[in-house]
Design a protein around this nucleic acid. Structure first.
Length: 359
DNA sequence: TCTGGGGTCCTAGGACCC
DNA sequence: TCTGGGGTCCTAGGACCC
């Protein structure tokens, strides 16, 4: 089957991944509404990372404040996020995918990956993938089959849970045409609203538009890219080149808003140290800094600056504290974030992004 | 119910240069 | 005199994804 001729893109997506990993190591939780988020304390400022299907039946979903989720499901099991455990499980899944015959694997996140293959029976191959993943990890996944990355990615949603669904140029408009543009991968609330203001509300309407007419509203790259998205078109090649981080960041939401300058400075020192730990592990110099602040209740501002590649830790810290000077001293601070951008290695792939244009 | 944390890329406008 | 035209770099902000 490896020698089949037709190229296909498979999108593999683990079902309720985080909740499933927790149930695996706490078997007594099977069948119960499990909600994972923050430190598992519903009195804190935190949101839901993943809810099990039992919890979703109560209307709980990712991104919902933990406090609300706990109220909706009185007998929910609330668990803290355990990133190390999910990374370990994810590594096992990805290794299983890479071991599939003839597969090129492009990892998109903890719980999903593209898989490029040549076969004349992609459904059979998809079932084999599901069987292999369950056998190795006891985790279930859904598989989207497509002739482009976008179509494969969107197809997965129709296969959940634990199913397989195929979307190609042949059935794209039949399946997706009547749906709202927000159902597309890469179109969120803001863009779908701006499209609607141009008279475009469905995928079919977006697919029919002349790409150039979107340039005045969305710019020279994004305009034509949205039109392409409407057609389901784009890249067909799965790229296994290892992903290289462009930067690292840390954010902290304070349980009580900060008001004192000394608290702010201490928080920035802490964030800088944590980010630089990651950067140091990469062995690449820092070339830029961004400080993000969320003033209470919800106003976000960012301040950035370039810095010389030769900067050492003390220099980076000094530059970070200089950015602190731009904060408004009269406002309460709810969140601080600090990001360090790094130089790229010479052989790094340029233009690869798991989530945005460039497919 | 006031909405985490870690990422990526695009756009606009000003500064500056020739 | 009220001002070209191309280019790059930098900063701030916006949008999206998992």
């Amino acid at each position: 089957m490896v020698s089949g001729t037709a190229p296909w893109v498979l999108h593999v997506d683990l079902d309720q991944f985080i909740a499933a990993v927790e149930v695996l190591r706490h078997p007594e939780l099977a069948g119960r509404p499990v909600i994972v988020g923050g430190r598992g304390d519903p009195t804190e400022r935190a949101v839901v990372s993943t809810a099990s299907y039992e919890a979703r039946a109560f209307g709980v979903g990712s991104g919902m404040p933990l406090r609300i989720a706990a109220r909706k499901v009185p007998d929910a099991v609330l668990l803290p996020v355990d990133a190390e455990a999910y990374t370990a499980a994810s590594d096992e899944v990805m290794a299983t995918l890479r071991a599939r015959p003839g597969a090129t694997v492009q990892v998109l996140g903890w719980d999903e990956a593209f898989l490029g293959i040549r076969t004349d029976d992609p459904e059979a191959y998809a079932r084999e993938v599901q069987r292999a993943v369950v056998e190795a990890t006891q985790l279930h996944c859904s598989v989207g089959i497509g002739d482009t990355l976008v179509r494969a990615k969107v197809a997965t949603g129709f296969g959940k849970p634990a199913g397989v669904f195929r979307l190609t140029a042949d059935n794209w408009l039949d399946v997706m045409g009547p749906r709202p543009t927000i159902d597309l991968w890469g179109v969120g609330t803001k863009i779908s609203r701006r499209l609607a203001s141009l008279g475009i509300t469905t995928v079919a309407e977006l697919a029919a538009v002349d790409p150039q007419t979107l340039v005045p509203e969305f710019g020279p790259k994004m305009g034509p890219w949205y039109a392409e998205l409407g057609r389901g078109d784009g890249a067909r090649e799965v790229d296994a080149t290892p992903w290289v981080a462009r930067g690292h960041s840390r954010e902290t939401t304070f349980q009580q808003n900060l008001t004192e300058a000394s608290e702010v400075e201490e928080a920035v020192r802490d964030l800088v140290d944590r980010v630089l730990e990651d950067v140091t592990a990469e062995g690449r110099p820092v070339i830029g800094l961004t400080l993000k602040v969320r003033y209470a209740p919800f106003l976000t501002k960012t301040f950035a600056r370039k810095i010389p590649q030769t900067a050492d830790r003390d220099e980076v810290l000094a530059q970070a504290l200089a950015l602190v000077g731009k904060l408004d001293p009269d406002r309460q601070i709810r969140l601080l974030g600090f990001r360090a951008e790094m130089t790229m290695p010479d052989d790094a792939r340029i233009g690869h992004t798991p989530t945005r244009g460039g497919w």
